[in-house]
Simulated assay, not measured.
Amino acid sequence: MSATTTELCACPGCTCSVNAHAPVERDGKTWCSEACADHHPNGAPCPSDNCHCEQALEKRTVSDRQLDEAVEETFPASDPISP
Score class of each variant (00 low, 15 high):
3 A>M: 06
77 A>C: 12
73 E>K: 15
73 E>D: 13
77 A>N: 08
64 D>E: 14
45 P>H: 05
80 P>L: 02
46 C>K: 03
70 A>K: 13
75 F>M: 10
80 P>Y: 00
73 E>Q: 14
21 H>V: 11
37 A>W: 05
5 T>W: 00
10 A>H: 03
23 P>G: 07
71 V>E: 14
48 S>A: 15
44 A>K: 15
14 C>R: 02
9 C>Q: 01
15 T>Q: 10
80 P>D: 05
14 C>W: 01
4 T>K: 07
28 G>S: 10
69 E>K: 13
24 V>A: 11
33 S>M: 07
33 S>V: 11
77 A>W: 04
73 E>T: 01
10 A>C: 03
9 C>W: 01
19 N>G: 08
7 E>D: 01
27 D>R: 08
78 S>K: 14
1 M>I: 09
54 E>K: 09
49 D>C: 03
7 E>T: 03
15 T>L: 05
5 T>A: 10
15 T>D: 06
45 P>M: 02
24 V>T: 15
45 P>F: 00
72 E>H: 07
71 V>L: 12
82 S>V: 12
60 R>E: 10
45 P>S: 11
68 D>K: 14
64 D>M: 09
9 C>A: 00
20 A>C: 13
49 D>A: 15
70 A>G: 13
1 M>F: 05
46 C>L: 07
47 P>F: 10
10 A>E: 02
8 L>E: 02
26 R>L: 10
80 P>M: 00
18 V>A: 09
18 V>P: 04
21 H>M: 14
63 S>A: 11
47 P>A: 12
17 S>C: 09
29 K>E: 11
2 S>L: 04
55 Q>W: 07
18 V>T: 05
81 I>T: 12
53 C>Q: 07
56 A>Q: 13
